[in-house]
Every structure is written in C-alpha cells, then in structure tokens.
C-alpha cells in the first residue's frame, strides 16, 4: 500500500481526458483532490493524494507519464533551509494540514512533515526569512 501527494500538470491538448477516473477504474487507485485549477492557456494543474497497491500505483504513474502528464511528488518539492530558518513560528498558523508544526514543546523546534504537505504555498509567502522553498510551484 502506498499513498502520496502529487502535483499533476496537464498540457492543453490533454486537459479534456478523464485521467483521474481512469486511475480509479483501471488501476484500482483511490484519489483525494486537494486543488484543481485550469489556467488561462488551458493547461491544468491538479493536486491529489493518490493511494493504492504498490504495483497499481507504479502502473498508474506510468500511464500518466505516457500521456504527457507531468508529475511532481510534493514531498520531493518542499524544502526548508535550516541555515535560514530560525524556528520563529510565523509559518505555523497558515499551514492547513499541520505539515509544519512544533512537536517538541521543550525545544520549540519547527519541523516539516513533508508527507502532510499539500503544496498550498502559504508558508513560502509568510516565512520572514525565505527559508521555505516549493520548487517549480507558481
């Protein structure tokens, strides 16, 4: 069983195909949509959490890639630069999933749980020292 949060980007020519439905019906995967947008030039961006058996998951991802959908795993795209971060806490109230949180109330260290991140980007804007990066995310 595998579950990952993914940013999918659809080129204009493919934005009318029922990708998520195919993922569910042919590859036995479940998905939870966190954000769906179509931009002015008709390319689409979908942020989903995709779950299923390891094999199904792999094949589902291959299917998307074969159809020109670009795939980005959120946990690979968000980073905190701990040379810049000084654990102030400005980012905490805007994180909708508690991916950013203080677990240890003794040290009060701000930690990032990448698997909870949904790439909303609020923390990137709020961080006063620009320590958080979400690659290729506009």
């Amino acid at each position: 069983m595998i579950s990952k949060k993914i940013i999918l980007r659809f080129p204009k020519e493919n934005s009318n195909k029922p990708f998520t439905s195919t993922l569910s019906r042919q590859y036995n995967l479940t998905f939870n949509i966190m954000s769906a947008e179509i931009f002015p030039r008709q390319e689409g961006r979908l942020i989903i959490e995709l779950s299923g058996d390891d094999r199904d998951f792999e094949q589902g991802i291959d299917y998307l890639k074969e159809n020109g959908v670009s795939i980005q795993f959120i946990e690979e795209s968000i980073t905190i630069d701990y040379n810049k971060c000084y654990h102030c806490g400005f980012c905490l109230p805007v994180c909708p999933t508690n991916a950013l949180l203080i677990e240890d109330r003794n040290t009060m260290k701000v930690e990032l749980h990448k698997e909870e991140c949904i790439a909303c980007g609020y923390c990137v804007k709020v961080c006063p020292v620009k320590a958080i990066e979400l690659s290729e995310f506009a």
């Binding site: 000084y86 654990h87 102030c88 203080i102 109330r105 009060m108």
Partner: peptide, 25 residues
C-alpha cells in the same frame, strides 16, 4: 502559550510563537 492552546471565553484557540525559543536557548 508554549503548550499550544489558550482559552478565550469558551473558545479554545491554538497558539504559535513569533519569537524563537529554540534560538533563545
């Protein structure tokens, strides 16, 4: 405040710092 919640009236409100305790230590 450090444990993460305060109460105002009947409402429990999550709290977060702006000053770094980690760096203060």
């Amino acid at each position: 405040l450090r444990e993460g919640f305060i109460t105002v009236g009947a409402k429990k409100i999550p709290t977060t710092p702006l000053s770094s305790y980690f760096m203060a230590v």
